[in-house]
Design a protein around this nucleic acid. Structure first.
Length: 597
RNA sequence: CGGGGCGUAGCGCAGGUGGUAGCGCGGUUGCUUUGGGAGCAACAGGUCCCCGGUUCGAAUCCGGGCGCCCCGACCA
């Protein structure tokens, strides 16, 4: 491609709404353009990188034995109602949906479990037709509450989604492992540093799930790792080892009434200071509106140590409910007879229609003795509370949020917290969708069984953006070779006939040798060319300028190293080829070839 | 959903006591320049987010709406 003919426009300044580095740089490089909040166009240059990513994913999915399909993204409400996801997603406000002329409703789908399950149930009747894994690379829609960070959280986005179908869990395990392997190959090919962590399966449902995360400060997820590297989990899922218990070995003292704190002492920190103890001895009592799967609800109390926080992603699962909403303050008075700060597990008044308020206790408090808790009276606390003795416990649950420095659940060292971008997510769905949609086959004993499914997502645009997050400097993007829009740029620094001819010849030869190369033949000053080339971040750069050319040389450098070497004109092409063969990050010169920078 | 901010040329922004709009970058043309976003000159480019109101007159004041960005989303 000749730059002078190409649709490329770079920006000296990033659009004002760009926040993340990848967003700023991709926009400045003219690779993406915002059309609306969370909705981006790819320019020819940006689309080239996107296509690179698509091809890598397609190759690795095909290699794994998966088969590509194309499912409608405009999907009828009816199949979403079969799995109860219509109401759920509408309630969460994240489903784009619309009506057609005849009043039918449709979704612009964020995932395709229903569509693929429908396809399979219509055509598969026997276990002999299994197993298989179907995937597609297609634009998806999610009406994000808050789209941000450019390609990282958009409302329209390109995602690869795959769905495996097996007769039993053993088959699912095989597919799951295959996908993990395929994903590892994909991210390794992109040159990305990533980690695999345990994850919550969220709204998709299912049992096990793991996320592929690119570690980056702009990441929206908090990740928990053990120092020793033998544990990694999304904070939504992370558990900790046994925490030291400050009451270990103590005798339980008689239950009492604490000297009253002033009503202003609302936080656990204030109270601990007032009582002359640590926050770990203050019991935090949180009241939740617990919504059951049948949409009925009740009020429940959850007790946790004052130095810990409740993880509201873990909570519903621990309580066996659909979701838990913290009770709004105005409802506290009727149940706990006090504003926040003095709520406790003893003497709660259940709301109408409920016999009692069940009290769930986090594991961290299961053995607690001689602790303080709110007395359900403003300004008052109980002291020397022994949880097992004094509280009617509905269940011991594990709902604490992991903290940096907590012991690792594996017993090896402490936990660290980093941020990450979720680029891939693999789930064991089980039979959630196949049962709801009656996607069944006859097994070997002629019994009708629902298919066991897995689902595997991979954000294409997001992975490209992650690559930029991970590979850039003050001048611009440093594309990993596999994702670069062009591998190499040949720039003619001057409009001099000899310069243009030599540069043109090198460009033509590289092209013939199969290198993806762009020829900067623009009528621009050298400075402009250098800036654009660095900003877009082509891995290799061949500079043809009148100065070096007078000595029969051109200058070659990689975007990663940025140190240019003079190379004889006749050796330029082979130097480029050798450097690409060597990975493209570092210049590979022949011994004795360098004439110095 | 709560709080804050913004909306003026392709991009980044200024203006705002009411009088019909400006700067930088970018663009076009010419001359000069030519190894890290050149200089001079001329030119082009605007629904000042939209609708309504006040006024002789609104980018500016008032009301309503829309769009966008940021922060927070309750830890008792």
């Amino acid at each position: 491609m000749r730059w002078s003919q190409a649709f490329i426009s770079t920006l000296r300044e990033a659009p004002g709404d760009a926040e993340a580095i990848s967003h700023k740089l991709l926009a400045r490089a003219g690779m993406i353009q915002r059309l609306a909040a969370g909705i981006y166009s790819y320019t020819p240059l940006g689309f080239r990188s996107l296509k690179k990513m698509i091809e890598i994913v397609r190759e690795e999915m095909d290699r794994s034995g998966a088969q590509e399909v194309d499912l409608p993204i405009l999907q009828p409400m009816e199949i979403w109602q079969e799995t109860k996801r219509w109401e759920r997603y509408i309630n969460d406000g994240i489903l784009f949906h619309l009506d057609d002329r005849k009043s039918g409703s449709f979704a612009l789908a964020p995932t395709a479990e229903e569509a693929v399950t429908d396809m399979v149930r219509k055509s598969v009747t026997s276990w002999r037709q299994l197993p298989f894994n179907l995937y597609q690379i297609k634009t998806k829609f999610r009406d994000e509450i808050r789209p941000r960070f450019g390609l990282l959280r958009g409302r329209e986005f390109l995602m690869k989604d795959a769905y495996s179908f097996d007769v039993d869990d053993k088959g699912l395990d095989v597919h799951y492992k295959k996908m993990e392997k395929a994903y590892r190959r994909i991210f390794e090919r992109c040159g990305l540093e990533y980690v695999l962590v345990q994850a919550d399966s969220g709204a998709i449902g299912g049992s096990a799930s793991e996320e592929f995360m690119v570690v980056a400060d702009t990441g929206e997820d908090a990740l928990v790792f053990s120092e020793s590297g033998d544990y990694g989990a999304n904070i939504e899922k992370a558990v900790t080892g046994e925490l030291p218990e400050p009451w270990a070995g103590e005798e339980a003292r008689p239950f009492g009434r604490a000297n009253a704190p002033t009503p202003g002492l609302i936080t656990c920190e204030d109270q601990a200071r007032h009582f002359g103890t640590t926050t770990s001895r203050i019991v935090k009592t949180m009241l939740y509106e617990a919504v059951r799967h049948d949409n009925t609800s009740f009020v429940a109390a959850v007790l946790i140590r004052g130095d810990l926080d409740i993880n509201e992603v873990k909570l519903p699962k621990a309580l066996g409910i659909l979701h838990a909403l913290l009770l709004p303050e105005h409802r506290l008075d009727a149940i706990a007879h006090t504003p926040p700060g003095f709520v406790g597990p003893i003497g709660l008044t259940p709301p109408a229609g409920q016999d009692d308020v069940p009290v769930y206790v986090d594991r961290s408090l299961a053995n607690a003795v001689n602790v303080y808790c709110g007395a359900n009276e403003e300004g008052t606390h109980h002291s020397n509370v022994s949880i097992a003795r004094d509280v009617k416990i509905a269940g011991i649950v594990e709902v604490a949020t992991a903290r940096e420095g907590d012991p690792s659940p594996t017993g090896n060292g402490k936990l660290l917290i980093k941020r990450g971008i979720e680029v891939g997510h693999i789930f064991k769905l089980g039979t959630k969708y196949s049962e709801a949609m009656r996607c069944e086959v006859a097994d070997q004993s002629q019994k009708l069984v629902p298919l066991v499914m897995g689902c595997y997502g991979l954000g294409i645009g997001r992975t490209v953006a992650s690559a930029v997050e991970q590979n850039h400097d003050s001048e611009g993007i440093i594309w990993p070779v596999p994702l670069a829009p062009y591998t190499c740029v040949v720039a003619a620094l001057q409009r001099d006939a000899d310069v243009l001819a030599k540069a043109g010849a090198i460009y033509e030869e590289l092209r013939e040798k199969g290198v993806e190369v762009i020829f900067d033949d623009r009528e621009e000053r050298p400075g402009v060319k250098f800036k654009d080339i660095d900003l877009i971040g082509f891995p290799l750069r061949v500079i043809v300028g009148s100065k070096a050319l007078a000595k029969g040389a051109v200058e070659i450098s990689t975007r990663f190293e940025r140190k240019a070497e003079s190379v004889p004109v006749a050796k330029a092409v082979e130097t480029v080829l050798r450097t690409i063969a060597g990975g493209g990050r570092r210049l590979v010169l022949e011994p004795g070839e360098s004439a110095g920078g």
